[in-house]
């Protein structure tokens, strides 16, 4: 799949933002006043910034409001609804803490639940697609949720929780890659089933429909940079898990904590780039590209 920068930024930063809002929502001793303002500002900036980035890739962004209507059937619509519900709930909760110093506990818990639900719905947009066997897995939601929770814990300064969650997310990521590498082969979809001609012999794409490229090839048959996949996976894992955990193991300092956050974000961005760039859509088979 085409690794569009807007979608990579959206899934990474909204995941981190909602992860941070989750931890702020369930905090038994939440910050108040200016400290609360800063924490919530970071959470909202990331979540809203991510959503705004996702609107950028729409062909008709001016009609984006229509995406709130089909929550009964569409995961993308559910995500839009959950995101707005989470942001509104957490906004009210934040207002109580920032301006009145008052902790509306049930509102915080509700906002935290909605924040996690938003991340779940994001992951389901990809996990639901049978056409992309690498994504079509029960492991895609745990991967997104663990990364969101780990990043949120890191941003909210929960050192021990962040370390263990990052290790869990790293393990899930390795397993997800291992499973994903076999997914297209195990899906049973080949050029033979795609054309219905597989029973007659070996099918080979002889001639494409057009000499030029097209939307399908640009959007769903991204094959560049696969040869660097292994190196990029190692880079992603080192920045996402190894470096931040090592920095958190050192005596706490605001500089090391900041470096840990930056490293983690860089690692997640790399992993998310691979999430899209490595994903094989079955339509590529028609073009002999797999």
């Amino acid at each position: 799949m085409h690794p569009a920068p807007s979608i990579i930024a959206f899934t990474t930063f909204s995941g981190l933002g909602f992860g941070l809002l989750f931890w702020l929502g369930i905090d038994a001793t939440p910050p108040t006043g200016w400290v609360a303002f800063v924490f919530f500002f970071i959470g909202f900036a990331m979540a809203v910034g991510g959503l705004a980035a996702s609107a950028k890739h729409l062909g008709r962004p001016e009609r984006a409001l229509k995406a709130f209507t089909q929550w009964r059937s569409s995961w993308l619509s559910r995500e839009a609804c959950c995101a707005v519900a989470a942001l509104v709930t957490m906004g009210l909760y934040a207002a109580g803490l920032v301006f009145a110093g008052y902790d509306l506990v049930p509102l915080g818990w509700l906002g935290a639940a909605l924040s996690l639900l938003t991340v779940l719905t994001t992951s389901m947009i990809y996990a639901q697609l049978k056409t992309v066997p690498r994504w079509h897995s029960v492991w895609t939601p745990p991967l997104f949720l663990s990364l969101s929770l780990a990043g949120g814990a890191l941003l909210s300064g929960r050192v021990t929780v962040a370390m263990s969650l990052m290790l869990i997310a790293g393990a899930l990521q390795v397993w997800w890659w291992y499973r994903g590498d076999k997914a297209l082969g195990q899906s049973g979809t080949t050029l033979g089933t795609a054309t219905g001609l597989g029973g007659r012999g070996t099918v080979r794409a002889f001639e494409p429909p057009h000499t030029g490229s097209n939307y399908l090839l640009r959007e769903m048959v991204y094959v560049v940079a696969r040869r660097h996949a292994l190196k990029l996976r190692i880079i992603a894992l080192v920045f996402m898990v190894v470096v931040p955990v090592a920095l958190l193991l050192a005596p706490f300092h605001h500089i090391t904590a900041l470096l840990a956050v930056l490293s983690h974000v860089a690692g997640v961005l790399t992993a998310r780039w691979l999430f899209f760039a490595e994903a094989e859509h079955v339509v590529g088979l028609y073009y002999g590209k797999r």
Binding site: M1, H57, L58, G59, R60, P61, R63, A64, K66, A67, L76, I125, Q128, L129, K130, T131, V132, T189, A194, N214, Y215, L216, E219, M220, H281, V282, V283, Y286
Partner: peptide, 26 residues
């Protein structure tokens, strides 16, 4: 009503849908 998100084209295994680059709709 189409916002041009492209998800339907991702969901189609046959490559039957194409986003129009000028119009921004499927």
């Amino acid at each position: 009503d189409c916002i041009g998100c492209g998800l339907c084209a991702w969901a189609c295994p046959y490559g039957a849908r194409e986003m129009d680059a000028a119009e921004g709709v499927m």
